[in-house]
Design a binder for these strands. Structure first.
Lengths: 352, 352
DNA sequence: ACATGGATGGAAACCGGTTCCCGAAACGGA
DNA sequence: TCCGTTTCGGGAACCGGTTTCCATCCATGT
């Protein structure tokens, strides 16, 4: 029994295979590698040994030797959110299509944790790390993210921001956004066109760029019609279902006057919808409701939710494609994906 | 300019750090490692060099040297499904809590792809690979999965099955299931207790074990009351929203006679619900409806869906805990998690 | 028959780390 | 002052692969 026995659980090494085939390790490597000329006799012997031992080359060792495909990292807040899940799906699909493995990490919104994870990815020599989900656009955010980008770039990796605030010019970063303001503008314009004049906006956190963009669209749509929205109709919460529920309940209790409500996300809309139902209100009979994101569930709400479609899955695919398909000379990219409103049953014309 | 310049993008190695600090690579390793005694003077010099170069040790090299925490792999059908997402979340959370990275792969239900991925994970020397989601319990499935389990085990890794058919005895596998039959039994018993006698079952694929379990529960609940369900009320599709929609529409069109419907998953229930609404039927006024899984959205359907709660997230956590916290002597485990029905508004007593 | 060259395959260096094994310096006690 | 311990740090081997370089061997061409 030698030190490295071939049996007994121990994963076999290339030298074990070599010994069994009666050749050197280099030869085994060459047979497996493919390119180098090897006589068919030795090739069969080696392949047989490989099969006998059920040998698989250690991917980490290959990586250290500079061969093998690097992995991709994907960081999000919470995989449980439907739009995040959609993006994750796109990322994962495209990554495996391109032959890359995909590491995932959820931060629960903890910035510290995000930073830690990026550091780990740098240690892993990940091909790219994709950060998704909006964030507060503070000076501190920019500085921190800039640091991440630089440190990743200096390690030969790349930072990709999905739906996140752009950094200043010169940051080694790829940014892919979807048009929050444009989508919200179109959606609210549609609501206004139905005759609504007092439309409640269930927004997100005040400093969150995604929330800001959608809010800007809400405002702009009003102004485009020469309307000035009542500031009392602009509510702030977060992007969760519970936030929508709470906000809507509060608005109802406070006797706010409105005929339509536009939620910053479909999740918020879902919460708002059940609050409306709980209050005995009919949608869209008594009040119209619209969401944003077009998550798969939107059409199973009752009534089916009018919302803005965001190509989340495509976004994920695009993120990995642009991240992976670049050379050092590729200029930093900044893509903006379009959105469109999908009209279903939750918005109706006012009776007046 | 030496061959390995410290500047210019090239990730710096431990030898670069050593050179800059004027010590040997071993010393740098020791400073970073922590345990070995190092004079505070050299320690500071090394740390300074590390900071200057923004050095991070290559995790893959460490892995090859036998240190560093191995990663965990997670394989599912489609991260977009709410219950899968919940499990994924649990897995990811527990893995990072334990300091492990987490690779993810979705198979789109393709067995071939699943096999490929497991092979890759073996090459990665993953600590464990967690396979989730039901499957057809065929002889071919068992043989194939058994092979995966053995090959993983022989590589020092471990296969964990989550909500999947058990393999025969002796397979090096950890199985964690949730009680499909028990949950369905309780749910259907509740529906029957409300006076319903003709309850439609919207099931999954006939050979899918999860679907089978839930169907068995449906049958058993009837028999426990001395009832024999009408075979015409047992419909088969898959676990998607569209399947529920299609099945329900078909049942309505065919004039099937029933006062309640139990769907095999909440997604199916969601599709069925909108089909019901489209037909102008009231839930639960005209017909009662129940789902299974208790996905977050269940309570935002209208009416809020009565369903069976499955501890998916806990399941994910448990999977990584049992997979990671084992020694070679640990016996193969087989855990069965309990479920409970959560009563909301979609099931009501019959008028009769 | 002999130089020539392509086909094969082994030895050794390398990738970027860790750790064992030792020697030298510093320190303490007699 | 001298010797025995620590304390500290360097050299080299190792982890499991790949690849360069070189030595054969065999089949040609003349």
């Amino acid at each position: 029994m030698t030190r490295k026995s071939e049996d007994a659980g121990g994963r076999s090494t290339i030298r074990d295979v070599a010994a069994r085939a009666g050749v050197s390790a280099s030869t085994v490597s060459r047979v497996l590698g493919g390119e180098y000329p090897v006589s068919s006799a030795t090739r069969t012997r080696v392949m047989r040994a490989v099969r006998d031992l059920d040998y698989v080359a250690d991917a980490r060792a290959k990586a250290v030797a500079g061969v093998g495909t690097p992995t991709l990292a994907f960081v999000l807040e919470d995989i449980t959110g439907p739009s995040f899940a959609l993006m994750a799906h796109g990322v994962e699909r495209e990554a495996t299509r391109l032959g890359h493995l995909c590491l995932v990490c959820s931060t629960e919104g903890d910035v510290e944790h995000e930073l830690e994870f990026v550091e780990m990815m740098r240690a892993q020599r990940a091909a790219a790390v994709i950060l998704v989900g909006g964030a507060a656009d503070t000076a501190e955010y920019r500085a921190r993210t800039r640091r991440m980008a630089d440190s990743l770039a200096s390690a030969g990796s790349r930072l990709v921001l999905c739906g996140r605030p752009t950094l200043g010019p010169g940051a080694p970063v790829t940014v892919i956004e979807y048009d929050n303001e444009g989508g919200a503008f179109a959606l609210v314009a549609h609501v206004l066109a139905q005759g609504h004049r007092r439309v409640l906006f269930l927004g997100g956190k005040a400093d969150h760029t995604t929330a800001q963009g959608r809010e800007r669209g809400y405002l702009a749509a009003h102004r485009a019609r020469g309307l000035e929205p009542d500031p009392a109709l602009l509510l702030h919460g977060d992007f969760t279902r519970d936030s929508g529920h709470r906000l809507m309940r509060g608005a109802l209790k406070n006797g706010l006057d409105f005929t339509a409500v536009v939620a910053a996300t479909d999740m918020v809309a879902a919460g708002a919808l059940t609050a409306l139902h709980e209050a005995g209100l009919e949608v869209p009979g008594d009040v119209s409701l619209a969401g944003y994101d077009d998550i798969p569930f939107a059409r199973d709400l009752h009534p089916a939710l009018t919302t803005v479609h965001v190509p989340y899955e495509e976004l994920g695919r695009l993120a990995v494609r642009t991240a992976l398909g670049r050379t050092p000379e590729t200029p930093d990219e900044h893509l903006l994906l379009g959105t469109h409103v999908v009209m279903r049953d939750s918005v109706a014309a006012t009776g007046s």
